[in-house]
Amino acid sequence: MDYMKSLATLSLGSRLKRLSDQLFAEVAIIYDQAGLKLNPNYFPLINLLNSVGPIGITQAADYLSISHPAVSKIADKMIKEGYLIKQPHPTDKRASLLSLTIKALHIIKQATPVWEALKQQLDYIENLQTHSLLTSIDQFESNLNNYNLAQAVANQLTRKNAKIELINWHPDYKNDFYKLNFNWLESEFYGDLTEKDKHALENPESYYLSHGGYIFFAKQEAKIVGCIAMKPEENGYMELSKMAVTPEMQGQGVGRKLILEAIAKARELAVSTIYLETNSKLKRALTLYQHIGFAHCNHPKGKSDYHRADVYMELKLYV
């Protein structure tokens, strides 16, 4: 068992470090077999200087998107091993330029066919992936750079202690209802909206409320952090749908509170059965439904009107 896999995103940094260590170890073996006396860690900087010519450490850090101290540390090692020299900057006396030595140019010539073969084999492994690893890394790096993770965690820890208030529908929260549901549909199903979805989200008053339905919201301080809708059907059935919770509040019990509020309202209305439709890949939601008492059942119509829904569940209130 690989325990780090069970930690999911919490082990992301550790797993990327593990993958990096494995790749560097493999490259070190390849270099040794090819007779290359080159530290694999030098590849980004030696390749950059070979491509753009002499540059300063600050420029190199910008090109490689790594810290100035990290580039400086690698450059110092490469200077000691004879791969780099520092030259005076032609216009700035306070700065210097990193330049490749004859030794470095010789090693690049020797390494080039090895790098080409290595790239072909890594491309082959990359093409075996269901989703491109390089594209995923690009997206994740971009998202992380545009997201203040440290501040978001601090804010969540602060919000965690703030009280969750459950409130009924109000027109002021119509946009929240739309955004909460559209965002999770965008995240999980690429924004796949059926005509029923559009009606429900754009006109919840006519879709739910005018038919005797209800919409509840979870509110924390001044922010809406979750929602759920219920719509009465024939024969004492009630549909539970459009449950959504903001990403930062997931796992905090908000969804459970919303479902229990809906169940309480259903009991008050003497509903016999609550049903819902979902997708089998939404593991966290499925676990929550099962813990509350929902059971998997055959779909009464044979299949759902929502092509993304492959799970039908019911909760019996009055038998």
Rank of each mutant, 00 (worst) to 15 (best):
M1C: 12
M1R: 03
Y3M: 03
Y3A: 02
S6Q: 08
G13A: 10
R18N: 05
L19P: 01
D21S: 08
D21T: 01
F24T: 06
I29E: 15
Y31V: 00
G35D: 10
L36I: 08
N39S: 02
P40L: 14
Y42K: 06
F43Y: 10
N50Y: 10
G53H: 00
I55G: 09
I55T: 09
G56I: 02
I57Y: 06
A60N: 08
A61T: 04
Y63A: 05
L64R: 03
L64D: 09
S67I: 09
S67C: 08
H68T: 15
A70G: 07
A70R: 12
V71C: 09
I79Q: 13
K80W: 04
E81I: 01
E81K: 09
G82T: 00
I85T: 11
Q87D: 07
H89F: 05
H89T: 07
R94M: 15
L98K: 10
S99D: 08
T101C: 03
I102G: 11
I107M: 13
V114R: 04
L118T: 01
L118Q: 12
D123C: 14
I125S: 14
I125M: 10
T135S: 10
T135D: 05
T135Q: 10
E141W: 10
E141N: 15
L144C: 12
L144S: 14
V153A: 02
A154V: 07
N155T: 15
L157Q: 15
L157N: 09
K160L: 11
A162Q: 05
I167A: 12
W169I: 00
Y173V: 08
N175K: 08
N183E: 11
N183W: 02
E186Y: 07
F189A: 12
G191L: 00
L201D: 01
L201R: 00
E205A: 14
E205D: 13
L209T: 13
L209A: 13
S210W: 02
Y214Q: 11
I215E: 01
I215H: 03
F217K: 01
E221T: 05
E221H: 01
A222G: 08
V225F: 01
I228C: 07
I228K: 00
A229D: 00
M230Q: 11
P232R: 07
E239I: 06
E239V: 09
S241G: 14
M243L: 08
M249A: 07
G251S: 02
G253C: 07
R256P: 12
R256S: 12
I259M: 09
A262N: 06
I263R: 07
A264I: 02
E268L: 15
E268D: 06
L286Y: 05
L286P: 03
T287F: 01
L288R: 00
Y289S: 01
G293C: 10
A295P: 06
H299M: 08
S304D: 03
D305Q: 08
D310V: 03
M313H: 07
E314C: 13
K316C: 15
K316D: 14
K316R: 14
Y318T: 11
